[in-house]
Simulated scan of single mutants.
Amino acid sequence: MTQTLLITGASSGIGAATARAAVKAGWQVALLARSRDALEKLAAELGDAALALPCDITERDQLSEAVAKTIERFGGLDAVYANAGKGSSSPGIEQGDPDDWHAMIHLNVLAVLTTAHATLPHLRKTKGHFVVTGSKAGRDHMKGSVYGATKWFVQGIAGNLAEEMREWGGRCTLITPGMVDTPFFDEPKPDKIQPDDVANAVVFALSQPRSADVREIHIMPSG
């Protein structure tokens, strides 16, 4: 039976790479992001196994509608990859931009919570899997990094969610990469982790037998 994976931040980088890897592994994918053109192009590439759902996941009504459309199209939900996130150009806390922090915290923290809140009732039915993108920045202290602090939250909530889902047979996996060569950065980083590397880790976690609960996969650039 074909399984369904919902991916946020699916229009580029890690999200798009994960969509391709998941479809190759036999999954159906619901693709969520704000960029309609990029999503529809990716969905066309992936064919009938993909559903493009342009939306802003920081808007709870839009997120709930996208989840409902996923269920309507595919009949259920087996896994979620909460991948959407953003960085900050603020140089630190004293000189930082509170408006910039607000937008970043809304996406990196609150949207992870609301994505879980909107999808857990459906994952409970399938004893499903919730995967979330953390960061090496959520494992280390970095001078003045509010972005890093948002990823410390993700580090914590993933462990707490794993314990909650464990009660009904679900699983939660945290993916914590170091620097990844994605549009997140202004300049290409060809010597760093590639989006396909992270995508492969996600598919690996999803493919593990019920006897194995992979709680975290930490990836660093080689060398």
Rank of each mutant, 00 (worst) to 15 (best):
E164C: 04
H122T: 07
H141G: 15
Q155E: 07
G170N: 04
H106R: 13
S89C: 04
A158P: 14
K143C: 00
T126C: 05
G134M: 03
L174P: 07
E187L: 13
A116V: 14
G148E: 02
G178P: 13
R139P: 01
V146M: 09
A158C: 09
P121L: 05
F185M: 05
K151S: 08
H106I: 00
A162Q: 10
A137I: 00
D186Q: 14
V109L: 06
W101M: 02
N108S: 06
E94D: 09
K125V: 13
A162L: 06
A111D: 06
W152S: 00
D100K: 05
T119Q: 02
H106K: 08
T150P: 06
R166P: 02
T173V: 03
G96I: 03
A116T: 13
G134I: 02
V131N: 00
K136T: 01
S89W: 03
P91N: 05
Q155P: 01
G148P: 00
I105A: 14
R124V: 12
S90W: 02
A111E: 03
E187D: 15
G170V: 11
P91W: 07
I105S: 12
R171A: 07
T114N: 11
T115Q: 04
T150R: 07
F184S: 10
K125I: 10
T119P: 06
L161N: 01
F130V: 07
F185G: 14
M104V: 02
H102D: 11
V180G: 01
W168G: 13
G170T: 07
A137R: 01
S90P: 09
A162R: 15
L120H: 01
P98F: 10
G85L: 03
H141R: 09
A111I: 07
G148I: 00
G85C: 11
K189Y: 09
S90L: 05
L123C: 05
K125T: 10
M179V: 15
N160Y: 08
A162N: 12
T176L: 03
D97S: 12
H117T: 14
K86Q: 14
H122Y: 15
R124P: 08
L161K: 08
F153C: 13
K86F: 06
K151V: 04
K125W: 04
T182F: 06
V131E: 01
D186S: 15
E163M: 12
L123V: 11
I175T: 14
R139A: 03
T182Y: 05
G128N: 10
P98E: 12
T176D: 13
T176F: 00
V109F: 01
H102K: 10
S135D: 05
E163C: 04
L110T: 14
S135T: 04
D97N: 15
G156D: 06
N160S: 15
P98C: 09
H117V: 13
P177N: 11
R171P: 04
A118F: 06
P91F: 05
T176Y: 00
